[in-house]
Write a protein that binds this DNA or RNA. Structure first.
Lengths: 112, 112
DNA sequence: CAGGTTCGTAAGTCAAGACTAACGGTAAGC
DNA sequence: GCTTACCGTTAGTCTTGACTTACGAACCTG
C-alpha cells in the first residue's frame, strides 16, 4: 500500500508540470522516440530527456532501446494508480456528503 | 471544451503540490474549517489559506461562510474533470497499443 | 575504423512559487 | 462598544526545479 501511495504521489507530481503533461499526452497517442518527441516540444531535447526520466520514475512511462533510439510508451499501470486514488477520494467525499445529508434529513424529521 | 481543458490543467497543477494534495485528501473525509485544517497541517494557517485559494480556483473545493468560520468541502466536479482526462488518456493509449499489436501480428507472422 | 546519429548526464543560471510574519477585516461574545 | 476568534491578503525571503549549453557514451553505417 505504501508503494502504491508513493507511486501515486510521484505520479501526481509528475503530471503537475505542463511540459511533462504535454509529453505524456502525446505519448498516449502512441509510442515515440526522444528525438521526435523533442521536435514537437517547446523545450530542448535534454529537457525532454529529463522530463521523461521523471515520468519513468513515476511509473507513468516505460523505455525501450531500439538501436540508438529510445522508444517511450505509456505505462497503463501508472494511470491506473492515479485513477484509483481519484476514485477513492471521490468515494469518501460522496460518503461524507451522504452522511451529512442524512443527518440534515434526520434533524428535519425531528423538527416536524 | 477549452474551459474543461483549462479546468483540468489547473486541477493537475493544483494536485501536484504535496501540501495541497494532503489538504484535499483530508477534505475528502468531510468538510472542515480553515483553522481545523491548519491545525493538522505542517505549515502555517496563511499557507493553508493560500493553498485553499488555489484549490478553489481549480474547481476542486468550494467555500461556505458559517459565521466567522469558512467551511471548505470537496467539489465533485473537479475530481470528475481530472478523471475524465485520465480516462481519455487511458483510452487512446489502449487503442494505440491495440493498433500496434494488430500490426505486429499482421507483419511478423514469421519473425519472433 | 572513421564519421554521423541518437540520447543521457553534469554544471550552472534563473524564475516560479511555497512559506512566514505582519496587518486588516468581519463575525460572535461579554 | 470592546474584546476576542477566525480568516484572507500583502510583502518579502528563500528553496525548489525547469531550462540550456557542453560533454560524453552507445549505436549504426560507410
Amino acid at each position: 500500500m505504501a508503494a502504491v501511495s508513493r507511486r501515486a504521489r510521484d505520479a501526481f507530481e509528475a503530471l503537475g508540470d505542463p511540459t511533462r503533461r504535454s509529453l505524456f499526452e502525446r505519448l498516449a497517442a502512441g509510442p515515440m522516440a526522444v528525438g521526435d518527441l523533442a521536435a514537437g516540444a517547446a523545450v530542448s531535447r535534454p529537457a525532454v530527456s529529463q522530463h521523461l526520466k521523471v515520468l519513468e520514475e513515476a511509473q507513468l512511462v516505460t523505455k525501450t532501446a531500439v538501436g540508438a533510439r529510445h522508444i517511450y510508451r505509456i505505462d497503463p499501470r501508472g494511470i491506473g494508480a492515479v485513477r484509483d486514488k481519484l476514485d477513492a477520494w471521490h468515494g469518501t467525499a460522496m460518503a461524507a456528503f451522504q452522511a451529512f445529508a442524512d443527518a440534515e434529513h434526520e434533524k428535519d424529521e425531528v423538527l416536524k
